[in-house]
Design a protein around this nucleic acid. Structure first.
Lengths: 358, 358
DNA sequence: AAAAATACCCAAAACGTTTTACATGCCGGA
DNA sequence: TCCGGCATGTAAAACGTTTTGGGTATTTTT
């Protein structure tokens, strides 16, 4: 075989026997719980070290009902059905950063697929809490988890579950306004938006904000949708559709996904249009495609690292309680301060696909 | 509070009571184990469904000694100490793909930091098996895990632990030869190599292969090292160092990391050299930097997705046994076929940083 | 010197499963 | 009528912890 001789792990019993005490004493000594003579504690600790003992996380989890694992479900990947490298930039960075932050807080982070489909790997319900990125409307995952009493924090709201408030925003409203403002400052008069088709708050709220602006301004809203999974090809297809429609073209297009934006830009350029002179392009999500298109595409930096960090922080506070909560202020008397979703700063990356302000 | 009323999960006892049978019968009925009257089984299954019962993964894990979680430790990130997006392309893609593959095989995948430092989040030793990417020499993580009887699969070998054979290669030897060959075919006469400083097999074996070639060819080896963490700046610094040395410049440089390659190229260009005309550049790891430099840099596509998939497959076979193993061929009589590391195909991405063959 | 307090330690229960080994009732065969 | 066998079901142990509720010396107080 390839593996080394699998030696049995030392248990608390082994330590107890070797140190000549009861397992209770070992547990207490190691966890600093009971009241124990210093000499005994020292002896136990040393024996434990000798034996290389570390408490079994599973057994401990069974007693304490916490495993030390955070689950992460990225909904768009469920619908996309693939972790193709192109375009999922954001999610991979999000997952990596979430893992690191979880680790720093003493949790492991397990990436999981939609636990409601197929035979959920039971382990799903064993995680201490979940982060769910971009839930869809009335998300069944949130349903399943809350029904089982598992803490959930969402990134992006569940647009049909207003009572679920444990979410932190991706700044969708602000970001959309910022992009529109950006276009307007640069002389745009006819702004269009391209959202994806997933039924999540990023798509919905972006469109909502856009429509609100259009209504206020009295402009006919120009809203297009495209399957996220189609990527750049989808953006290009949309460009052709736009050109073929005979309608007057927009002079600024806001594509939520970076791949749509890159495809749209390429499609328009192929038809002889100049970016940004004829038409400006911006993306709602910075990605390799927006950074490396020609010209590079102005994008919202969704700050996946900061968002992940905030989400983990929020969830851990939900689980462990807010560390420095004011003990006097505890309105619901549940002994735990109510954590409030951290805010994340987003920035617009000003690139050549929108006119310079000079 | 933000969470829903945390309802207690139904246990096997609840099901047993409701169905009027013992918990043994419930367990058997649900797992298809014992011999039970069809009517009883049906009744049990139905009540279980009614109650929304699903066995607790932790309790089950305690009995069966398997949790359904695979651990992933990416060593270079431990030493790098950061999940910064730049340059870790490969690892994020690796982690994402590994997670998906694990999920497909009924496991969750938990990303973890070096479990030997600090107070390892006990959960580390609770994972069923581990994938460890790019172990360092005599890697303490492999040591810790095997000592505790936990299955480990490495990507890249432990260069000072020949008895550890459960690793799959990143094709380092072949890849290095391929790049050298690529350079030679394009007229290079003076080839240099730049490795990183981590003490892993990627660095070591690349250098070894290169030196072997140089020795055979009778060329003085031109070997440089640079801290991986320095990224593009490190590559640029090395370029300046090369220029300042007064030695005749190489006409082809193989940088293992994409960031070093990009920095090296930029540094040489800044000094007025033309790529590829004066000097050719290639990278041992395709990344955003190599794809998007000007000119784009010829690179080995390390196929992180395929490698991750192979690693997970290998590990799962180690844990569960090879599904379709020939029962007659079982030399060690341990009832489990010995899985053999899957092979992964790597390709060289031929780009403008090396001369065209026209 | 007896009672009360203190310091230290431990047995056993509990967490929710799976599995082993045995109990019960019924049938057919002798 | 008795017995072996079969079909069905169950009690209890085990997994490795943490925690509860004492228990036993030893010391202090009266």
């Amino acid at each position: 075989m390839t593996t080394n001789p699998p030696r049995r792990r030392a248990t608390i019993h082994d330590v107890a026997k070797r140190a000549g005490v009861s397992i209770t004493t070992v547990s207490h000594a190691l966890n600093g719980k009971g009241v124990i003579a210093d000499a005994t504690r020292k002896r136990v600790v040393e024996t434990a070290a000798d034996l290389g003992y570390s408490p079994d996380a599973i057994a401990r989890g069974l007693r304490s009902r916490r495993l030390g694992i955070l689950g992460l479900v990225i909904r768009p990947l469920d619908t996309l059905g693939s972790y193709q490298p192109e375009g999922v930039d954001y999610f991979l960075r999000f997952a990596g950063a979430a893992a690191v932050e979880a680790l720093d807080r003493g949790y492991g982070l397990a990436l999981m697929r939609d636990p409601t489909v197929g035979n959920a790997p039971g382990i799903a319900l064993a995680a201490d809490g979940f982060i769910i990125s971009d839930p869809v409307a009335s998300d069944p995952v949130i349903e399943l988890l809350t029904r089982n009493g598992i803490a959930v924090v969402a990134v992006g709201r569940d647009i049909e579950r207003p009572e679920f408030t444990a979410w932190l925003g991706a700044g969708t409203h602000t970001n959309t306004d910022a992009v529109i403002q950006h276009f307007l400052e640069r002389g745009a008069t006819r702004i269009a938006i391209v959202t994806g088709e997933d039924n999540n708050s990023w798509n919905a709220d972006s469109e909502l904000t856009y429509r609100a602006w259009a209504a206020e301004r009295g402009q006919t809203p120009l809203v297009y949708h495209q399957d996220e999974g189609l990527g750049e090809a989808g953006g290009r297809a949309l460009a052709e559709q736009l050109l073929a429609s005979g309608e007057p073209l927009p002079d600024a297009i806001y594509c939520l996904t970076g791949r749509h934006a890159a495809g749209m830009q390429a499609g328009l350029q192929a038809a002889g249009y100049l970016i940004p002179d004829d038409i400006m392009i911006a993306s709602g999500s910075d990605s390799e495609q927006t950074r490396n298109s020609a010209p590079p595409i102005t994008s919202i930096d969704l700050a996946p690292e900061a968002t992940a960090k905030a989400a983990v922080t929020f969830l851990v506070e939900l689980l462990d309680g807010v560390p420095d909560a004011d003990p006097d202020a505890d309105p619901d008397g549940d002994g735990a301060g109510d954590p409030v979703p951290p805010e994340v700063e987003y920035r617009i990356r000003d690139r050549a696909s929108t006119r310079s302000m000079r």
